[in-house]
Computed example of a mutant assay.
Amino acid sequence: MVKRITAMAVCLLAAGCTTPRVEHVTTPLPLPPRPALPAVPNEGLECLAPDVYRALVERDRARRDYTEQLEAIIESTHKDRDGARVCLDCQRVRKHRTRTREG
């Protein structure tokens, strides 16, 4: 009986040691371009009440801050575990020169 329990324990321990190591890999997310926002002339804002103007400025600032946070999250997926930047074209650590559009 003791030999059977010992044999089962050895089998279970050996089976536990042979499980493959799981490594999670983050896929770099594409960074969408920022939209071109229309410019608002100062003359168009003169008719706003001060509290409405302040709310408009705070809204624009909050949107800009939110956009920068999202860009930082997306750009964090462009790095490997050591913090090196990953090339989105070849999915490897960026050690080569970046190609320009001209050539």
Rank of each mutant, 00 (worst) to 15 (best):
G16L: 10
E43L: 06
S76H: 12
P38S: 01
L29M: 14
R54K: 08
A39G: 05
C17G: 12
L29H: 12
A84N: 15
D51Q: 04
D80C: 05
L12R: 06
P28A: 01
E46P: 03
A14H: 00
L70T: 09
A39W: 00
P30I: 09
P32W: 01
T77P: 07
C17Y: 07
L70K: 09
A9P: 02
C47A: 11
I74A: 14
V10I: 12
V86T: 04
R61I: 04
L48F: 10
A55F: 03
V86S: 01
A9L: 11
E68T: 06
H78T: 10
E58K: 12
L13E: 12
E23T: 14
L45I: 03
V52H: 04
Y53M: 14
L37A: 04
P20G: 08
L12D: 00
E71H: 13
R85A: 12
S76E: 07
A72N: 06
D51R: 10
L48S: 02
L37K: 01
L29I: 11
E75W: 02
P38L: 05
P20I: 02
I74C: 06
L29W: 14
L37I: 03
E46T: 14
P28T: 03
V86M: 09
V57R: 10
A55C: 01
A49Y: 01
D65M: 05
E58S: 03
A36R: 04
R59D: 14
P33T: 01
P50H: 02
P50Q: 02
L31M: 06
L13S: 11
L29P: 07
C11H: 13
R85M: 11
R63G: 12
E46L: 14
E46R: 12
V52K: 08
L56D: 07
A84D: 13
E58L: 12
A49Q: 11
V57T: 13
E68M: 08
D65W: 06
P38F: 00
I74N: 02
Q69F: 08
E71A: 13
Q69A: 10
R85E: 15
R85P: 15
Q69C: 06
L45T: 05
G83V: 06
